[in-house]
Design a protein around this nucleic acid. Structure first.
Lengths: 195, 195
DNA sequence: GACGATAAGGAACCGTTGGGTCCTTACATG
DNA sequence: CATGTAAGGACCCAACGGTTCCTTATCGTC
């Protein structure tokens, strides 16, 4: 940009990641190109490939940088906490290029290391930590059975929302969140309760 | 193949779809090329593009042709029926090129018509009809509450299995099926029952 | 303050791929 | 047997990911 000022290190790196994100937002995963990203960042492909060994790797970096993890809601009620959590994730999904997640999953499938990174970030432990905190609090309050539920139940809320997101085009309706929580998750958390 | 015999119509079409499937199986979604498919089928790209307007369209045709829908298990018990159903689907998943489904989802995202076709086939009504029959029978036998459960619960078994498949590389372990059914689905079907 | 290693800028290049054109020739139909 | 349709096949094109090479600015070190 500034003709005679040559950026280096993390300054340059951030500019590139930001450019990648802009390109992803505007063109989508499928049509985003390394050339465009380089041009946007005011640099050359050379520099991109020095830092990331291929396109998906850079795209993942961009995703990591811009889709921050949500903090833990604390309303005093499990159900409301879960609704709030999924609500926020739904909003994040809305900001994502529609084909980013599925594209990343597809393209990282022949690279075990990258796939695991994608997996960890998009659907791995980190994401479910928040749910774990919510459920532990609920157990402490006596709203659900003591102790944590089975791993699969813990993952359920986010798995179901992500599933819904991957299987649809365009933004998710708000009811999706409440349906998932009220029809599926809550009945599993209150074992022999109402209804 | 046969030098002087020129195939036409459905004969040729089937040969192409079969070639596409072979190519998909051997190269995977990401690396399968139209050129290779044409060569395998002993024809030219010209002929492919006369029938399918682009690559994903042909790939979807190949998927439709080779991944037949399972028939309805009938063991006399809901739980066993569901386990059998998911078990079969799991086997089908094993035969699929690992990146086919997610690739199709990614690439069809900018074509509403195609996406809907993928959606209908991969995750649409047709797939859940089998579950519906199983549950209706169970309700008739009095094993679960009368009437069909909420749409979301009905879709749950297959949604969860597909989710597991999309989010992992390599074949799914058999326990996945029983865990999904026993930890999640069954407790939701027997409302105020055991545990 | 001078110097050398490092890395940025920039352009050109390569191989592959999806998609398309054009011409020749086989075949099914009337 | 004549004719329209479509298969076969070669060739072309633009775009893209990835690579290479050369020039030049910047940073750390002496």
């Amino acid at each position: 940009m500034d003709q005679t000022r040559r950026r280096r290190g993390s300054t340059l790196e951030e500019a590139i990641v930001e450019a990648a994100w802009d390109e992803l937002r505007e063109a989508g995963y499928a049509k985003a190109t390394m050339n465009n990203i380089a041009r946007r960042a005011g640099t050359s492909k050379h520099v991109l490939y020095r830092r990331w060994k291929n396109q998906p790797e850079l795209f993942l970096a961009a995703l990591k940088r811009f889709a921050a993890t949500a903090d833990v809601p604390d309303t005093g009620d499990v159900r409301d906490d879960l609704v709030a959590l999924l609500g926020r994730i739904r909003q994040v999904f809305d900001l994502l290029p529609g084909d980013l997640i599925s594209g990343l999953i597809t393209d990282s499938r022949n690279d075990a290391v990258l796939f695991d990174e994608v997996r960890t970030y998009v659907m791995g432990e980190g994401v479910h930590d928040v749910t774990r905190v919510i459920l532990r609090r609920a157990a402490d309050r006596g709203q659900i059975e003591p102790g944590l539920p089975a791993a699969r139940i813990l993952r359920l809320p986010i798995d179901l929302l992500r599933n819904e997101y991957l299987m649809s085009r365009g933004p998710l309706p708000a009811e999706t969140v409440t349906e998932i929580i009220d029809d599926i998750v809550m009945p599993l958390l209150r074992p022999a309760a109402r209804r």
